[in-house]
Design a protein around this nucleic acid. Structure first.
Lengths: 266, 266
DNA sequence: GCCGATTTGTCCGTATGTATC
DNA sequence: CGATACATACGGACAAATCGG
Protein backbone atom coordinates (compact mmCIF):
# COMPACT_ATOMS: atom_id res chain seq x y z
CA UNK A 1 0.00 0.00 0.00
CA UNK A 2 1.48 3.33 -0.97
CA UNK A 3 1.33 5.73 1.96
CA UNK A 4 4.03 7.88 0.49
CA UNK A 5 3.62 11.60 0.86
CA UNK A 6 3.54 12.31 -2.87
CA UNK A 7 0.77 9.73 -3.22
CA UNK A 8 -1.35 11.37 -0.54
CA UNK A 9 -0.93 14.72 -2.25
CA UNK A 10 -1.72 13.14 -5.62
CA UNK A 11 -4.91 11.62 -4.25
CA UNK A 12 -5.94 14.83 -2.50
CA UNK A 13 -5.47 16.90 -5.62
CA UNK A 14 -7.25 14.33 -7.75
CA UNK A 15 -10.20 14.32 -5.37
CA UNK A 16 -10.41 18.11 -5.42
CA UNK A 17 -10.24 18.14 -9.21
CA UNK A 18 -12.92 15.47 -9.56
CA UNK A 19 -15.10 17.38 -7.09
CA UNK A 20 -14.51 20.42 -9.29
CA UNK A 21 -13.12 22.28 -6.35
CA UNK A 22 -10.45 23.07 -8.90
CA UNK A 23 -12.69 23.44 -11.97
CA UNK A 24 -11.96 22.73 -15.61
CA UNK A 25 -9.58 25.31 -17.06
CA UNK A 26 -8.56 26.77 -13.72
CA UNK A 27 -4.99 26.83 -12.47
CA UNK A 28 -3.85 24.93 -9.42
CA UNK A 29 -2.10 26.94 -6.71
CA UNK A 30 1.57 27.35 -7.60
CA UNK A 31 3.91 24.52 -6.73
CA UNK A 32 5.52 26.73 -4.14
CA UNK A 33 2.15 27.43 -2.52
CA UNK A 34 1.17 23.78 -2.52
CA UNK A 35 4.52 22.80 -1.03
CA UNK A 36 3.85 25.19 1.84
CA UNK A 37 0.26 23.96 2.19
CA UNK A 38 1.15 20.29 2.32
CA UNK A 39 4.30 20.89 4.34
CA UNK A 40 6.65 19.31 1.86
CA UNK A 41 9.24 20.23 -0.72
CA UNK A 42 8.43 21.45 -4.17
CA UNK A 43 9.89 18.23 -5.56
CA UNK A 44 7.24 16.20 -3.82
CA UNK A 45 4.46 18.40 -5.16
CA UNK A 46 5.95 18.09 -8.62
CA UNK A 47 5.85 14.35 -8.41
CA UNK A 48 2.16 14.40 -7.56
CA UNK A 49 1.51 16.85 -10.36
CA UNK A 50 3.32 14.73 -12.96
CA UNK A 51 1.23 11.74 -11.97
CA UNK A 52 -1.89 13.86 -12.52
CA UNK A 53 -0.56 15.08 -15.86
CA UNK A 54 0.20 11.54 -16.98
CA UNK A 55 -3.42 10.62 -16.38
CA UNK A 56 -4.86 13.60 -18.16
CA UNK A 57 -6.07 15.55 -15.14
CA UNK A 58 -3.82 18.56 -15.58
CA UNK A 59 -1.39 20.14 -17.96
CA UNK A 60 1.77 21.90 -16.80
CA UNK A 61 2.42 25.18 -18.58
CA UNK A 62 5.89 26.61 -18.33
CA UNK A 63 5.89 30.05 -16.77
CA UNK A 64 2.11 29.95 -16.31
CA UNK A 65 1.01 27.27 -13.90
CA UNK A 66 -0.75 23.95 -13.85
CA UNK A 67 -4.08 23.96 -15.65
CA UNK A 68 -6.90 21.57 -14.89
CA UNK A 69 -8.15 19.80 -18.04
CA UNK A 70 -10.29 17.19 -16.34
CA UNK A 71 -13.94 17.16 -17.31
CA UNK A 72 -16.45 14.85 -15.67
CA UNK A 73 -17.27 12.31 -18.34
CA UNK A 74 -20.00 9.78 -18.87
CA UNK A 75 -18.66 6.79 -17.00
CA UNK A 76 -17.60 4.06 -19.39
CA UNK A 77 -17.63 0.57 -18.04
CA UNK A 78 -14.06 -0.29 -18.89
CA UNK A 79 -11.52 2.39 -18.18
CA UNK A 80 -8.45 0.20 -18.48
CA UNK A 81 -5.92 2.94 -17.88
CA UNK A 82 -4.45 0.83 -15.13
CA UNK A 83 -4.13 -2.84 -14.40
CA UNK A 84 -7.52 -3.74 -13.11
CA UNK A 85 -9.21 -7.10 -13.08
CA UNK A 86 -12.70 -7.68 -14.39
CA UNK A 87 -13.83 -8.12 -10.79
CA UNK A 88 -12.33 -4.81 -9.74
CA UNK A 89 -13.85 -3.01 -12.70
CA UNK A 90 -17.22 -4.48 -11.93
CA UNK A 91 -16.96 -3.61 -8.26
CA UNK A 92 -15.96 -0.05 -9.05
CA UNK A 93 -19.08 0.28 -11.18
CA UNK A 94 -21.27 -1.61 -8.71
CA UNK A 95 -22.14 -4.32 -11.19
CA UNK A 96 -23.23 -7.84 -10.66
CA UNK A 97 -20.82 -10.15 -12.38
CA UNK A 98 -20.53 -13.89 -12.77
CA UNK A 99 -18.05 -16.19 -14.44
CA UNK A 100 -18.52 -19.50 -16.24
CA UNK A 101 -15.47 -21.69 -16.59
CA UNK A 102 -15.92 -23.45 -19.93
CA UNK A 103 -12.52 -25.08 -20.09
CA UNK A 104 -9.88 -25.83 -17.51
CA UNK A 105 -6.88 -27.88 -18.61
CA UNK A 106 -3.14 -28.02 -18.44
CA UNK A 107 -0.60 -28.18 -21.21
CA UNK A 108 3.10 -28.03 -21.83
CA UNK A 109 4.55 -25.31 -24.05
CA UNK A 110 5.84 -26.80 -27.27
CA UNK A 111 7.85 -24.94 -29.89
CA UNK A 112 4.76 -23.36 -31.44
CA UNK A 113 3.32 -22.11 -28.16
CA UNK A 114 6.70 -20.89 -27.05
CA UNK A 115 7.12 -18.97 -30.27
CA UNK A 116 3.63 -17.53 -30.33
CA UNK A 117 3.05 -16.58 -26.71
CA UNK A 118 6.55 -16.06 -25.28
CA UNK A 119 6.67 -18.79 -22.67
CA UNK A 120 9.88 -20.84 -22.48
CA UNK A 121 9.66 -24.22 -24.22
CA UNK A 122 8.74 -27.08 -21.94
CA UNK A 123 6.95 -24.73 -19.55
CA UNK A 124 3.95 -26.20 -17.74
CA UNK A 125 0.82 -24.10 -18.21
CA UNK A 126 -2.76 -23.85 -17.11
CA UNK A 127 -5.10 -23.20 -20.01
CA UNK A 128 -8.42 -21.68 -19.06
CA UNK A 129 -11.40 -20.38 -20.99
CA UNK A 130 -14.03 -18.36 -19.19
CA UNK A 131 -17.13 -16.39 -20.03
CA UNK A 132 -17.60 -13.21 -18.03
CA UNK A 133 -21.12 -12.07 -17.51
CA UNK A 134 -22.51 -8.80 -16.30
CA UNK A 135 -26.02 -9.05 -14.92
CA UNK A 136 -26.26 -12.33 -16.77
CA UNK A 137 -25.25 -10.96 -20.17
CA UNK A 138 -22.12 -12.62 -21.60
CA UNK A 139 -19.68 -9.82 -22.38
CA UNK A 140 -16.18 -11.24 -22.48
CA UNK A 141 -14.57 -14.49 -23.50
CA UNK A 142 -11.30 -14.81 -21.58
CA UNK A 143 -8.55 -17.16 -22.63
CA UNK A 144 -5.82 -17.40 -19.99
CA UNK A 145 -2.51 -19.17 -19.84
CA UNK A 146 -0.66 -19.18 -16.54
CA UNK A 147 2.79 -20.54 -15.74
CA UNK A 148 2.20 -23.36 -13.32
CA UNK A 149 5.54 -22.89 -11.54
CA UNK A 150 4.52 -19.34 -10.64
CA UNK A 151 0.84 -19.60 -9.83
CA UNK A 152 1.10 -23.04 -8.21
CA UNK A 153 -2.17 -24.72 -7.43
CA UNK A 154 -5.07 -23.37 -9.43
CA UNK A 155 -8.53 -24.90 -9.43
CA UNK A 156 -11.70 -24.51 -11.40
CA UNK A 157 -13.29 -23.01 -8.33
CA UNK A 158 -10.67 -20.30 -8.07
CA UNK A 159 -11.04 -19.64 -11.80
CA UNK A 160 -14.75 -19.05 -11.32
CA UNK A 161 -13.86 -16.08 -9.11
CA UNK A 162 -10.96 -13.66 -9.47
CA UNK A 163 -7.69 -15.38 -10.26
CA UNK A 164 -5.79 -12.16 -9.71
CA UNK A 165 -7.25 -11.75 -6.26
CA UNK A 166 -6.22 -15.30 -5.42
CA UNK A 167 -2.69 -14.81 -6.74
CA UNK A 168 -2.08 -11.62 -4.84
CA UNK A 169 -3.52 -12.74 -1.53
CA UNK A 170 -2.77 -16.44 -1.38
CA UNK A 171 0.24 -17.11 -3.54
CA UNK A 172 2.06 -13.84 -2.99
CA UNK A 173 2.51 -13.13 -6.66
CA UNK A 174 2.77 -9.42 -7.27
CA UNK A 175 1.56 -8.13 -10.59
CA UNK A 176 3.79 -5.30 -11.64
CA UNK A 177 3.77 -4.64 -15.35
CA UNK A 178 1.32 -5.53 -18.03
CA UNK A 179 1.83 -5.11 -21.76
CA UNK A 180 -1.30 -5.03 -23.82
CA UNK A 181 -2.17 -5.08 -27.47
CA UNK A 182 -5.52 -4.07 -28.76
CA UNK A 183 -6.95 -5.28 -32.07
CA UNK A 184 -10.25 -5.96 -33.80
CA UNK A 185 -10.71 -9.50 -35.07
CA UNK A 186 -13.20 -11.64 -36.90
CA UNK A 187 -15.36 -13.76 -34.67
CA UNK A 188 -14.67 -17.47 -34.30
CA UNK A 189 -17.02 -20.34 -33.67
CA UNK A 190 -16.36 -20.28 -29.98
CA UNK A 191 -17.13 -16.54 -29.78
CA UNK A 192 -20.40 -17.18 -31.51
CA UNK A 193 -21.22 -20.02 -29.20
CA UNK A 194 -20.67 -18.21 -25.94
CA UNK A 195 -21.25 -14.52 -26.58
CA UNK A 196 -24.50 -13.00 -27.78
CA UNK A 197 -23.08 -11.12 -30.70
CA UNK A 198 -26.26 -10.09 -32.48
CA UNK A 199 -25.09 -9.06 -35.93
CA UNK A 200 -21.52 -8.15 -35.09
CA UNK A 201 -19.01 -10.22 -37.02
CA UNK A 202 -15.99 -8.78 -35.19
CA UNK A 203 -14.99 -8.18 -31.64
CA UNK A 204 -12.51 -6.18 -29.60
CA UNK A 205 -9.52 -8.28 -28.59
CA UNK A 206 -7.10 -7.33 -25.83
CA UNK A 207 -4.08 -9.58 -25.53
CA UNK A 208 -1.80 -9.02 -22.60
CA UNK A 209 1.39 -10.34 -21.09
CA UNK A 210 1.74 -9.87 -17.38
CA UNK A 211 4.98 -9.74 -15.40
CA UNK A 212 5.44 -10.33 -11.70
CA UNK A 213 7.85 -8.62 -9.31
CA UNK A 214 10.62 -10.97 -10.43
CA UNK A 215 10.25 -9.85 -14.01
CA UNK A 216 8.83 -13.23 -15.00
CA UNK A 217 6.11 -13.26 -17.60
CA UNK A 218 3.67 -15.59 -15.88
CA UNK A 219 0.49 -14.90 -17.79
CA UNK A 220 -0.75 -14.57 -21.32
CA UNK A 221 -4.34 -13.56 -21.73
CA UNK A 222 -6.65 -12.87 -24.58
CA UNK A 223 -9.88 -11.09 -23.70
CA UNK A 224 -12.46 -11.10 -26.45
CA UNK A 225 -14.99 -8.34 -25.81
CA UNK A 226 -18.42 -7.83 -27.23
CA UNK A 227 -18.10 -4.53 -29.13
CA UNK A 228 -21.18 -2.90 -27.65
CA UNK A 229 -19.88 -3.06 -24.08
CA UNK A 230 -16.30 -2.16 -24.71
CA UNK A 231 -14.44 1.10 -24.49
CA UNK A 232 -10.86 1.94 -23.75
CA UNK A 233 -9.60 5.31 -22.54
CA UNK A 234 -6.18 6.80 -22.83
CA UNK A 235 -4.34 10.06 -22.32
CA UNK A 236 -1.24 10.89 -24.27
CA UNK A 237 1.13 13.72 -23.46
CA UNK A 238 3.51 15.07 -26.03
CA UNK A 239 7.09 14.79 -24.79
CA UNK A 240 8.11 18.16 -26.13
CA UNK A 241 7.29 21.03 -23.78
CA UNK A 242 6.60 24.03 -25.93
CA UNK A 243 8.07 26.72 -28.11
CA UNK A 244 4.83 28.54 -27.68
CA UNK A 245 4.88 31.21 -30.36
CA UNK A 246 1.57 32.59 -29.10
CA UNK A 247 0.69 33.68 -32.61
CA UNK A 248 -2.95 33.48 -31.75
CA UNK A 249 -4.35 36.32 -29.70
CA UNK A 250 -4.44 35.95 -25.97
CA UNK A 251 -6.79 33.38 -24.57
CA UNK A 252 -6.21 33.96 -20.92
CA UNK A 253 -7.75 32.24 -17.94
CA UNK A 254 -6.23 33.54 -14.78
CA UNK A 255 -5.69 31.86 -11.50
CA UNK A 256 -8.74 32.22 -9.29
CA UNK A 257 -12.19 32.69 -10.76
CA UNK A 258 -12.11 32.04 -14.46
CA UNK A 259 -14.65 33.08 -17.03
CA UNK A 260 -14.58 29.55 -18.43
CA UNK A 261 -16.70 29.94 -21.61
CA UNK A 262 -19.74 27.72 -21.10
CA UNK A 263 -18.23 24.41 -22.12
CA UNK A 264 -21.31 22.29 -21.87
CA UNK A 265 -20.76 18.87 -20.38
CA UNK A 266 -19.04 16.77 -23.02
CA UNK B 1 13.19 19.69 -28.76
CA UNK B 2 14.26 18.15 -25.50
CA UNK B 3 18.01 18.21 -25.11
CA UNK B 4 17.81 17.67 -21.37
CA UNK B 5 20.34 15.38 -19.79
CA UNK B 6 17.78 12.88 -18.51
CA UNK B 7 16.38 12.60 -22.01
CA UNK B 8 19.78 11.82 -23.51
CA UNK B 9 20.31 9.12 -20.91
CA UNK B 10 16.81 7.78 -21.55
CA UNK B 11 17.46 7.59 -25.28
CA UNK B 12 20.87 5.98 -24.80
CA UNK B 13 19.49 3.31 -22.50
CA UNK B 14 16.54 2.68 -24.78
CA UNK B 15 18.84 2.23 -27.74
CA UNK B 16 21.02 -0.22 -25.83
CA UNK B 17 17.97 -2.18 -24.71
CA UNK B 18 16.51 -2.31 -28.21
CA UNK B 19 19.90 -3.44 -29.53
CA UNK B 20 19.79 -6.11 -26.84
CA UNK B 21 23.06 -4.85 -25.46
CA UNK B 22 21.07 -5.14 -22.26
CA UNK B 23 19.13 -8.32 -23.04
CA UNK B 24 15.68 -9.39 -21.92
CA UNK B 25 15.67 -10.35 -18.24
CA UNK B 26 19.09 -8.85 -17.46
CA UNK B 27 19.63 -6.10 -14.92
CA UNK B 28 20.84 -2.65 -15.83
CA UNK B 29 23.94 -1.38 -14.04
CA UNK B 30 22.99 0.08 -10.67
CA UNK B 31 21.73 3.64 -10.58
CA UNK B 32 24.90 4.65 -8.75
CA UNK B 33 27.05 3.10 -11.47
CA UNK B 34 25.05 4.74 -14.24
CA UNK B 35 25.22 8.11 -12.50
CA UNK B 36 29.01 7.81 -12.44
CA UNK B 37 29.07 6.62 -16.06
CA UNK B 38 26.90 9.44 -17.39
CA UNK B 39 28.42 12.02 -15.07
CA UNK B 40 25.19 13.03 -13.42
CA UNK B 41 23.29 12.60 -10.18
CA UNK B 42 21.32 9.50 -9.26
CA UNK B 43 18.11 11.52 -9.52
CA UNK B 44 18.76 12.19 -13.17
CA UNK B 45 19.37 8.51 -13.88
CA UNK B 46 16.21 7.66 -11.97
CA UNK B 47 14.20 10.00 -14.14
CA UNK B 48 15.43 8.28 -17.28
CA UNK B 49 14.68 4.90 -15.75
CA UNK B 50 11.13 5.86 -14.80
CA UNK B 51 10.49 6.96 -18.36
CA UNK B 52 11.69 3.56 -19.55
CA UNK B 53 9.52 1.81 -16.97
CA UNK B 54 6.46 3.81 -18.02
CA UNK B 55 6.92 2.57 -21.57
CA UNK B 56 7.41 -1.04 -20.64
CA UNK B 57 11.13 -1.32 -21.30
CA UNK B 58 12.18 -2.06 -17.75
CA UNK B 59 10.82 -2.85 -14.33
CA UNK B 60 12.36 -1.45 -11.15
CA UNK B 61 12.71 -4.02 -8.38
CA UNK B 62 13.27 -2.72 -4.89
CA UNK B 63 16.48 -3.99 -3.40
CA UNK B 64 17.35 -5.88 -6.60
CA UNK B 65 17.88 -3.57 -9.51
CA UNK B 66 16.27 -2.60 -12.78
CA UNK B 67 15.29 -5.53 -14.97
CA UNK B 68 14.90 -5.33 -18.74
CA UNK B 69 11.53 -6.66 -19.88
CA UNK B 70 11.69 -5.43 -23.46
CA UNK B 71 11.38 -8.06 -26.14
CA UNK B 72 11.70 -7.25 -29.82
CA UNK B 73 8.23 -7.56 -31.26
CA UNK B 74 6.75 -7.85 -34.70
CA UNK B 75 6.40 -4.24 -35.77
CA UNK B 76 2.77 -3.17 -35.89
CA UNK B 77 1.92 -0.28 -38.12
CA UNK B 78 0.15 1.81 -35.52
CA UNK B 79 1.86 2.02 -32.17
CA UNK B 80 -0.08 4.96 -30.80
CA UNK B 81 1.66 5.06 -27.46
CA UNK B 82 2.32 8.73 -28.04
CA UNK B 83 0.64 11.53 -29.92
CA UNK B 84 1.72 10.87 -33.44
CA UNK B 85 0.12 11.93 -36.66
CA UNK B 86 -0.67 9.57 -39.49
CA UNK B 87 2.16 11.18 -41.45
CA UNK B 88 4.65 10.61 -38.65
CA UNK B 89 3.57 7.01 -38.19
CA UNK B 90 3.92 6.39 -41.88
CA UNK B 91 7.33 8.03 -42.02
CA UNK B 92 8.54 6.00 -39.06
CA UNK B 93 7.54 2.86 -40.89
CA UNK B 94 8.84 4.11 -44.24
CA UNK B 95 5.45 3.86 -45.88
CA UNK B 96 4.02 5.67 -48.82
CA UNK B 97 0.92 7.49 -47.74
CA UNK B 98 -1.62 9.70 -49.48
CA UNK B 99 -4.70 11.58 -48.37
CA UNK B 100 -7.96 12.31 -50.16
CA UNK B 101 -10.02 15.17 -48.83
CA UNK B 102 -13.63 14.12 -49.38
CA UNK B 103 -15.25 16.95 -47.51
CA UNK B 104 -14.09 20.37 -46.41
CA UNK B 105 -16.65 22.70 -44.90
CA UNK B 106 -17.23 25.03 -41.99
CA UNK B 107 -19.95 25.04 -39.40
CA UNK B 108 -20.99 26.72 -36.20
CA UNK B 109 -21.42 24.68 -33.03
CA UNK B 110 -25.08 24.51 -32.06
CA UNK B 111 -26.43 23.06 -28.81
CA UNK B 112 -26.22 19.49 -30.07
CA UNK B 113 -22.63 19.75 -31.29
CA UNK B 114 -21.61 21.58 -28.17
CA UNK B 115 -23.12 18.84 -26.04
CA UNK B 116 -21.75 15.96 -28.03
CA UNK B 117 -18.23 17.09 -28.82
CA UNK B 118 -17.37 19.55 -26.06
CA UNK B 119 -16.90 22.74 -28.05
CA UNK B 120 -18.47 25.89 -26.63
CA UNK B 121 -21.77 26.83 -28.26
CA UNK B 122 -21.44 29.30 -31.11
CA UNK B 123 -17.89 28.21 -31.81
CA UNK B 124 -16.79 28.37 -35.46
CA UNK B 125 -15.43 25.07 -36.70
CA UNK B 126 -13.82 23.48 -39.71
CA UNK B 127 -15.36 20.12 -40.56
CA UNK B 128 -13.16 17.83 -42.61
CA UNK B 129 -13.46 14.28 -43.82
CA UNK B 130 -10.42 12.56 -45.23
CA UNK B 131 -9.43 9.12 -46.45
CA UNK B 132 -5.91 8.06 -45.53
CA UNK B 133 -4.23 5.61 -47.85
CA UNK B 134 -1.15 3.53 -47.45
CA UNK B 135 0.41 2.45 -50.70
CA UNK B 136 -2.93 3.24 -52.28
CA UNK B 137 -5.03 1.10 -49.92
CA UNK B 138 -7.64 3.09 -47.99
CA UNK B 139 -7.08 2.39 -44.29
CA UNK B 140 -8.57 5.19 -42.28
CA UNK B 141 -11.53 7.52 -42.55
CA UNK B 142 -10.73 10.64 -40.54
CA UNK B 143 -13.39 13.07 -39.40
CA UNK B 144 -11.87 16.23 -37.94
CA UNK B 145 -13.33 19.27 -36.30
CA UNK B 146 -11.02 22.18 -35.57
CA UNK B 147 -11.73 25.41 -33.75
CA UNK B 148 -11.32 28.11 -36.31
CA UNK B 149 -10.20 30.72 -33.79
CA UNK B 150 -7.25 28.51 -32.87
CA UNK B 151 -6.13 27.01 -36.16
CA UNK B 152 -6.88 30.15 -38.20
CA UNK B 153 -6.68 29.73 -41.95
CA UNK B 154 -7.02 26.14 -43.07
CA UNK B 155 -7.34 25.08 -46.70
CA UNK B 156 -8.16 21.94 -48.57
CA UNK B 157 -4.57 21.83 -49.74
CA UNK B 158 -3.23 21.85 -46.20
CA UNK B 159 -5.75 19.16 -45.27
CA UNK B 160 -4.41 16.93 -48.03
CA UNK B 161 -1.09 16.88 -46.18
CA UNK B 162 -0.47 16.91 -42.45
CA UNK B 163 -2.64 19.36 -40.58
CA UNK B 164 -0.64 18.82 -37.41
CA UNK B 165 2.59 19.64 -39.15
CA UNK B 166 1.02 22.83 -40.48
CA UNK B 167 -0.32 23.83 -37.07
CA UNK B 168 2.94 23.30 -35.25
CA UNK B 169 5.19 24.98 -37.79
CA UNK B 170 3.06 27.74 -39.26
CA UNK B 171 0.42 28.66 -36.72
CA UNK B 172 2.47 28.04 -33.59
CA UNK B 173 -0.16 25.84 -31.99
CA UNK B 174 1.48 23.39 -29.63
CA UNK B 175 -0.22 20.08 -29.13
CA UNK B 176 0.22 19.07 -25.54
CA UNK B 177 -2.36 16.59 -24.34
CA UNK B 178 -4.65 14.25 -26.16
CA UNK B 179 -7.46 12.24 -24.63
CA UNK B 180 -8.53 9.24 -26.62
CA UNK B 181 -11.35 6.77 -26.49
CA UNK B 182 -11.22 3.52 -28.34
CA UNK B 183 -14.32 1.60 -29.38
CA UNK B 184 -15.55 -0.85 -32.00
CA UNK B 185 -18.53 0.30 -34.03
CA UNK B 186 -20.80 -0.87 -36.78
CA UNK B 187 -19.89 0.39 -40.21
CA UNK B 188 -21.83 3.21 -41.77
CA UNK B 189 -22.61 3.94 -45.39
CA UNK B 190 -19.73 6.33 -45.66
CA UNK B 191 -17.29 3.77 -44.27
CA UNK B 192 -18.47 1.30 -46.86
CA UNK B 193 -18.16 3.84 -49.62
CA UNK B 194 -14.58 4.87 -48.91
CA UNK B 195 -12.87 1.96 -47.19
CA UNK B 196 -12.40 -1.47 -48.68
CA UNK B 197 -13.87 -3.42 -45.83
CA UNK B 198 -14.16 -6.85 -47.39
CA UNK B 199 -16.47 -8.74 -45.07
CA UNK B 200 -15.90 -6.74 -41.91
CA UNK B 201 -19.07 -5.14 -40.61
CA UNK B 202 -17.29 -3.25 -37.83
CA UNK B 203 -14.28 -1.05 -37.51
CA UNK B 204 -11.94 0.32 -34.89
CA UNK B 205 -12.84 3.85 -33.87
CA UNK B 206 -10.50 6.20 -32.06
CA UNK B 207 -12.08 9.45 -30.96
CA UNK B 208 -9.79 12.05 -29.50
CA UNK B 209 -9.88 15.50 -28.02
CA UNK B 210 -6.69 17.47 -28.36
CA UNK B 211 -5.57 20.33 -26.14
CA UNK B 212 -3.03 23.01 -26.97
CA UNK B 213 -0.54 24.68 -24.64
CA UNK B 214 -3.25 27.04 -23.42
CA UNK B 215 -5.39 24.14 -22.29
CA UNK B 216 -7.93 24.85 -25.04
CA UNK B 217 -9.57 21.87 -26.66
CA UNK B 218 -9.12 22.87 -30.27
CA UNK B 219 -9.73 19.57 -32.03
CA UNK B 220 -12.16 16.70 -32.01
CA UNK B 221 -11.30 13.81 -34.26
CA UNK B 222 -12.80 10.48 -35.06
CA UNK B 223 -10.51 8.06 -36.86
CA UNK B 224 -12.28 5.04 -38.30
CA UNK B 225 -9.75 2.29 -38.93
CA UNK B 226 -9.98 -0.82 -41.07
CA UNK B 227 -9.63 -3.64 -38.54
CA UNK B 228 -6.98 -5.56 -40.45
CA UNK B 229 -4.46 -2.73 -40.31
CA UNK B 230 -5.03 -1.56 -36.80
CA UNK B 231 -3.30 -2.35 -33.56
CA UNK B 232 -2.84 -0.39 -30.39
CA UNK B 233 -0.15 -1.03 -27.78
CA UNK B 234 -0.10 -0.11 -24.14
CA UNK B 235 1.92 -0.73 -21.01
CA UNK B 236 0.37 -0.49 -17.59
CA UNK B 237 2.31 -0.40 -14.34
CA UNK B 238 0.67 -1.22 -11.07
CA UNK B 239 1.07 1.68 -8.64
CA UNK B 240 1.72 -0.53 -5.66
CA UNK B 241 5.39 -1.51 -5.20
CA UNK B 242 5.37 -4.94 -3.72
CA UNK B 243 4.76 -6.99 -0.61
CA UNK B 244 6.80 -9.71 -2.19
CA UNK B 245 6.13 -12.68 0.02
CA UNK B 246 8.40 -14.80 -2.12
CA UNK B 247 6.30 -17.83 -1.36
CA UNK B 248 7.51 -19.34 -4.58
CA UNK B 249 11.01 -20.70 -4.57
CA UNK B 250 13.77 -18.46 -5.75
CA UNK B 251 13.74 -17.54 -9.37
CA UNK B 252 16.95 -15.63 -9.52
CA UNK B 253 18.60 -13.99 -12.46
CA UNK B 254 21.69 -12.17 -11.40
CA UNK B 255 23.31 -9.10 -12.74
CA UNK B 256 25.81 -9.93 -15.45
CA UNK B 257 25.41 -13.02 -17.53
CA UNK B 258 22.04 -14.55 -16.86
CA UNK B 259 20.96 -18.08 -17.59
CA UNK B 260 17.85 -16.60 -19.24
CA UNK B 261 15.88 -19.79 -19.97
CA UNK B 262 15.51 -19.93 -23.76
CA UNK B 263 12.63 -17.56 -24.17
CA UNK B 264 12.11 -17.88 -27.87
CA UNK B 265 11.27 -14.66 -29.64
CA UNK B 266 7.62 -13.84 -28.91
C1' DG C 1 18.19 -15.82 12.34
C1' DC C 2 21.10 -11.82 12.24
C1' DC C 3 24.09 -8.50 10.18
C1' DG C 4 26.14 -5.82 6.73
C1' DA C 5 26.62 -4.57 1.82
C1' DT C 6 24.05 -3.37 -2.10
C1' DT C 7 20.19 -1.37 -4.43
C1' DT C 8 16.05 0.98 -5.11
C1' DG C 9 12.39 4.32 -2.92
C1' DT C 10 11.29 8.67 -0.80
C1' DC C 11 12.21 13.25 0.44
C1' DC C 12 14.61 17.46 1.25
C1' DG C 13 17.05 21.95 0.25
C1' DT C 14 19.28 24.46 -3.04
C1' DA C 15 20.87 26.33 -7.38
C1' DT C 16 20.22 27.54 -12.04
C1' DG C 17 17.73 27.87 -16.44
C1' DT C 18 13.77 29.30 -19.12
C1' DA C 19 9.16 31.03 -20.12
C1' DT C 20 5.38 34.22 -19.07
C1' DC C 21 3.61 38.44 -17.92
C1' DC D 1 13.32 44.90 -16.64
C1' DG D 2 11.76 42.30 -12.48
C1' DA D 3 8.58 39.07 -10.39
C1' DT D 4 6.52 34.72 -10.77
C1' DA D 5 6.20 30.01 -12.20
C1' DC D 6 7.64 25.77 -13.98
C1' DA D 7 11.96 22.71 -15.65
C1' DT D 8 16.20 20.62 -14.76
C1' DA D 9 19.83 19.09 -11.96
C1' DC D 10 22.68 18.22 -7.94
C1' DG D 11 24.00 16.19 -3.54
C1' DG D 12 22.69 14.36 0.53
C1' DA D 13 19.93 11.82 3.98
C1' DC D 14 17.34 8.05 5.48
C1' DA D 15 14.06 4.12 4.69
C1' DA D 16 12.95 -0.39 2.83
C1' DA D 17 13.96 -4.56 0.40
C1' DT D 18 17.19 -8.12 -1.01
C1' DC D 19 20.94 -11.17 -0.64
C1' DG D 20 25.07 -13.24 0.91
C1' DG D 21 27.89 -14.74 4.60
Amino acid sequence: MPKAKFDLIYKDLRRKIEAEEYPFQSLLPSEHTMAAFYGCSRNTVRRAVSALAAEGYVQSLHGIGVRVIFQPVEQAVFTMGTIESFQETAARNRLNITTDVIRFTQLTADARISQKYGFPAGCELYYIQRVRRLDGKPLILDINMFRKDVVKELTEEIASGSIYDYLEHNVGVTIVTSKRKFTVEHITEIDEKYLELNDYNCLAVVTSQTFDADGIMFEYTQSRHRPDYFSFHDTAVRRCPARTQQTAEKRVYHRGKNPCPSINGL
